[in-house]
Amino acid sequence: MIKLVQHTLQRELTLAYRRRADLLNPLFFFVLVVSLFPMGITTDLDKLTEMSGGVLWVCALLASLLSLDLMFRNDFEDGSLEQMLLSSAPPQVIVLCKIFCHWLVTGVPLTLLSPLLSIMLALPGHALPVLMASLLLGTFSLSLIGSIGAALTVGLRKGGLLLTILIMPVLVPVLIFGTSTVQAIVLGLAWPGYLAFLGAFTAGAFALAPWLTVAALKVSVCD
């Protein structure tokens, strides 16, 4: 089992490296959309400070939704996906590895990019570590829940937009917990509670998502 996990992680990460152009797009999107907000709404730094948590969170959510469609698509098209479902290990393990890699190559870079953007939005410095922690946790649950949507739509030729429609309402709690955490620390309120909700949500998603994803993959692969 450990060998399989090692092998899958290695495969996913080398593939991600070889397709690195695809991975840059969500990052560019993140930067671009965040920088549109001040131009569209206000350049007043005080008002931006108030909004910064929400803006960063909404943009991070949209950016990682963009990359979800690629999670299973290539494997579906070349037939690797059905082999994964026939693997001698539980397919949930392979799926979880894929989700983890997706997070490593989208959620983590988005988080690492967030300090730069938080300066542009005048987020107070002391809130930055909390923002990054909430983004790290939140993007992981985005990858977990998003994998269900990606699995449901992988068989459709134009699944990308549908995937967004399916998964967005389910992600509302992530957005709310994440934004509330950041806003709480900006306003000087107690924030650890909100972060704990986010953690609990992620833990729940971690427990359920792999099973639902495998069930959804079976729907897409089996005819």
Binding site: K3, H7, N74, Q83
Partner: peptide, 19 residues
């Protein structure tokens, strides 16, 4: 057969999936 991988990597992964 994953096109972005070499034949050796493809074969090794097929074997790994069967542990």
């Amino acid at each position: 057969v994953t096109l972005m991988q070499t034949p050796l990597e493809n074969l090794a992964f097929a074997v790994a999936m069967h542990q």
